[in-house]
């Protein structure tokens, strides 16, 4: 399944990855060959087999509904580039 350069650019944008224009073709080629490699799996008959959601043969453990966390916002906010009035500040988002 070959990927075109437009698709590569779109995927990079969705993942917010900056892709230098001169690398797009190389990525398209590499990603296409990875997909082609994985395509071999399509030869396997998967009829009646439940899709695997997790490699571990186990089920989700549940925790009781209890508040166990205390307020550590001061420590967390000391890591943030900008915080004021208890809010984390980010570049202006215009809706």
């Amino acid at each position: 399944m070959p990927l075109g350069s437009d698709e590569v650019k779109r995927i990079a944008h969705l993942a917010r990855l900056a892709l230098p224009p001169d690398t797009v073709d190389a990525y398209a080629r590499d990603l296409s060959s990875i997909l082609t490699f994985v395509e071999q799996l399509e030869a396997v008959d998967t009829q009646g087999i439940q899709p695997m959601a997790h490699p571990q043969e186990s089920k989700q453990r549940l925790r009781p509904d209890v508040v166990t966390e205390s307020d550590q916002s001061a420590r967390f906010q000391s890591l943030a580039p900008r915080a004021e009035m208890g809010l984390y500040l980010v570049p202006k988002v215009i809706e």
Partner: peptide, 29 residues
């Protein structure tokens, strides 16, 4: 209407001071 969050032990009470009920899990650290 749970007391704690779906994937962490932080409180879900409404109206708290900003970010005082956001723990490391909620912050995605």
């Amino acid at each position: 209407a749970t007391r704690s969050k779906i994937f962490s032990g932080a409180s879900t009470a409404y109206g708290a001071e900003p970010n005082t009920q956001a723990c490391a899990v909620d912050l995605g650290l």
